[in-house]
Nucleic acid binder design. Structure first.
Length: 208
DNA sequence: CCAACGATGGTCT
DNA sequence: GACCATCGTTGGC
């Protein structure tokens, strides 16, 4: 299991570092293959962007906890809280490669097709049986955990999916060539300078 | 293949 | 009352 320290890094870095790691819930294992970063400053697409509310409260807590919310009245999305306490940031887990417990996932998802089990944020929570009950839980304490993996994947970047605001920001990350990634979208190699330039601008905004 | 659309209910203004 | 970090189905090619 990963230490608390693992989660204490910048949100965009955590979003990349989570790729290739395992999300583990009981007998269910999935390799994280796609993530998105949501930032407190300068990111209108972030739930916490307008400040603390009852729903987004976990995002303002310590890194390494879960933030699970209901979307479109039907699906749940799993996030891993990042950033510092008081800073509302998180990483959305967008897709997993199913690794263990595939029969259970198939039952939960009502499909046999492996590519359709966890290839989307609403799909993976359904496959794992995650709901609001799993909101604001420590990944150190469980029952949800992140396990390490030595894999160093090749990472690509693109804009995020499904947003009406903040859609131009390059904050989606995924493993090159992985067939369980949720959606095609024009992507580029990971460019630290591009991300850093944005982060710099966000801090400027913060200090206004 | 893929664009359009409806289901569905919590959250915030 | 409007919005939504989605998904499965439908109907076109």
């Amino acid at each position: 299991m990963l230490s608390a320290r693992f989660f204490q890094r910048s949100t965009t870095e955590l979003a990349r570092e989570l790729l290739g790691k395992y999300l583990v819930y009981g007998r269910l294992w999935g390799k994280i293959v796609e993530t998105e970063a949501y930032l407190y400053h300068g990111d209108p697409g972030c739930h916490a962007h307008r400040g603390l509310t009852p729903r987004n409260a976990p995002m303002f807590g310590p890194a390494g906890r879960t933030y699970v919310y209901l979307i479109y009245g039907m699906y749940y999305c799993l996030n891993i809280v990042s950033g510092k306490v008081g800073e509302g940031e998180a990483v959305l887990i967008r897709a997993l490669e199913p690794v263990k417990g595939l029969e259970i996932m198939q039952k939960n998802r009502r499909t046999l097709k492996i590519e359709n089990l966890c290839s989307g944020p609403g799909k993976l929570t359904q496959a794992f049986g995650l709901t609001k009950k799993h909101n604001n839980l420590s990944l150190q304490k469980g029952p949800l955990h992140i396990y390490d993996n030595q894999e160093k994947p090749v990472i690509l970047t693109s804009t995020r999916i499904g947003l009406n605001v903040g859609k131009e920001l390059p904050l989606r990350f995924f493993i090159q060539g992985n067939r369980f990634v949720s959606n095609y979208r024009p992507a580029t190699e990971y460019r630290p300078r591009q991300i850093n330039a944005f982060a710099k601008q966000a801090i400027k905004l913060k200090n206004h």
